[in-house]
């Protein structure tokens, strides 16, 4: 069975990471920004899995599980916050949430 070289996985993870990054930067909607961050986190998780498989260890997958859990927690808090923001600003445009500056 031919194995996919580990580098490929890493490249894939990097591409994913970059996609998340770019979309985070260009999106104004906070919900989408949250999603973009999730993509980035998952890219990191993928990288862990790739690395774990490279060394034939379970550690990478363990880490991925933790990342998933954490991402879930984060999203839950994040959505709650977005709700609050929407409540107050009547928008989910992140640029509007700029009362504090200077």
């Amino acid at each position: 069975m031919t194995t996919i070289p580990a580098e490929y996985g890493l490249v894939l993870a990097t591409v994913l990471f970059m996609l998340g990054l770019i979309s985070l930067l260009i999106r104004r909607n906070i919900v989408f920004m949250l999603i973009s961050v999730e993509i980035m986190l998952n890219a990191a998780g993928l990288a862990f899995i790739v690395a774990g498989s490279r060394w034939s260890q379970a550690d990478g997958q363990v880490m991925f599980l933790f990342i998933l859990t954490m991402a879930a927690a984060e999203v839950s808090v994040g959505l709650a916050l977005i709700l609050q923001i929407y409540h107050q600003l009547k928008t989910v445009n992140s640029d509007e949430a700029s009362k504090m500056k200077g």
């Binding site: 580990a6 890493l10 993870a13 990471f17 998340g20 985070l24 906070i30 920004m33 949250l34 961050v37 980035m40 986190l41 890219a43 990191a44 998780g45 990288a47 862990f48 790739v50 690395a51 774990g52 490279r54 060394w55 550690d59 990478g60 880490m63 990342i67 954490m70 984060e74 808090v77 994040g78 916050l81 977005i82 609050q84 923001i85 107050q88 992140s94 949430a97 700029s98 009362k99 504090m100």
Partner: peptide, 29 residues
């Protein structure tokens, strides 16, 4: 302002966490 601070912190923290995780993955790799 509290909410604004919260969401800013959240997004940026998650963003940087992603960086850090990716970095850790690279090191692990």
């Amino acid at each position: 302002r509290s909410d604004e601070g919260g969401i800013k912190y959240l997004i940026i923290a998650a963003f940087s966490s992603a960086f850090m995780l990716f970095g850790m993955a690279l090191i692990y790799y």
